[in-house]
């Protein structure tokens, strides 16, 4: 078991491919298992990670090649996960985070990605620079 003062970390580097979305969320779920989470907490984190990685694949790299970095840490009962891409970035982060807002023209995207992350995690922070990339950092207290 983790002592409350210790921080444990992991870092994963994956290619920006849609089939890696599942891989990323499963790794996050396994990493957080050291906090003895409930099934609901695991589901929440898996969905939130899936949203962030999907955003990087679809929007950050626009379906093209690129690398996505997933870092996670636990300190006490708090889980922090960050998903970073070096893609096109987001022009207007506040607008991108509005529920139902999407730049997708096919009608298949709900525009609910950030809304899901915010509903399922305690804290979501997005830092982005157009042309440089995006970092999404999410925190959740497990068993809190």
């Amino acid at each position: 078991m983790t002592k409350s003062s210790e921080t444990e970390t992991m870092r994963l580097e994956i290619e920006s491919r849609s089939h890696n979305e599942e891989f990323a969320r499963v790794v996050a779920a396994v990493f957080m298992s050291r906090l003895d989470p409930t099934l609901e907490e695991v589901d929440d984190v898996k969905t939130a990670v899936s949203e962030a990685v999907t955003n990087s694949v679809i929007h950050g790299y626009r379906g093209g090649p690129g690398t996505i970095y997933i870092e996670a840490s636990v300190r006490g009962k708090e889980l922090t996960v960050s998903v970073t891409d070096c893609g096109v970035g987001i022009q207007d982060v506040a607008r991108a985070m509005e529920p139902m807002y999407t730049t997708d023209c096919t009608g298949e995207r709900s525009g609910m990605g950030f809304a899901f992350m915010e509903a399922l995690m305690d804290q979501v922070q997005v830092r982005s620079q157009p042309g440089r990339g995006t970092v999404v950092t999410m925190k959740k207290l497990i068993g809190g």
Partner: peptide
């Protein structure tokens, strides 16, 4: 056993 907002997008589009 798993769904994210991609699933919601599909359902809403089919609903419309």
């Amino acid at each position: 056993v798993f769904m994210d907002s991609s699933g919601v997008g599909i359902l809403l589009n089919r609903y419309k």
